[in-house]
């Protein structure tokens, strides 16, 4: 499953990254060598093996639904590049 330059474009779009032309070639080359290395996983028989998403035998963790103090509005907005009237402010969407 070799990655083409078109694949690099498509994945970059999904990942919200814009890459320069020479960067794309470098990514394609390095990603291909890593993916080739990952190919060896296809050799293993995993029929009927359950996937491990989490190593601890944890079930859902619940707590009482009590009101508590969270971050203040001021603190929550303290790192924002732009704010207005207590909201995060972004450039126009379309």
């Amino acid at each position: 499953m070799a990655i083409s330059l078109d694949d690099v474009d498509y994945v970059a779009k999904l990942a919200k990254l814009s890459l320069a032309v020479d960067e794309k070639e470098d990514y394609a080359r390095k990603l291909n060598s890593i993916l080739q290395y990952m190919e060896q996983l296809q050799d293993i028989d995993t029929k009927d093996i359950l996937p491990t998403t989490h190593v601890l035998p944890l079930e859902n963790v619940f707590r009482e639904d009590e009101l508590r103090e969270g971050l203040s509005l001021e603190k929550a907005l303290s790192n924002a590049p732009d704010t207005q009237d207590g909201y995060f402010k972004v450039p126009k969407i379309i």
Binding site: K16, N79, A80, P81, F88, V90, P91, I93, I94
Partner: peptide, 13 residues
């Protein structure tokens, strides 16, 4: 949007 670097352009995307 909420913290860290922002390189502002004409639209959000």
């Amino acid at each position: 949007v909420r913290y860290g670097l922002r390189v502002e352009k004409d639209n959000l995307n």
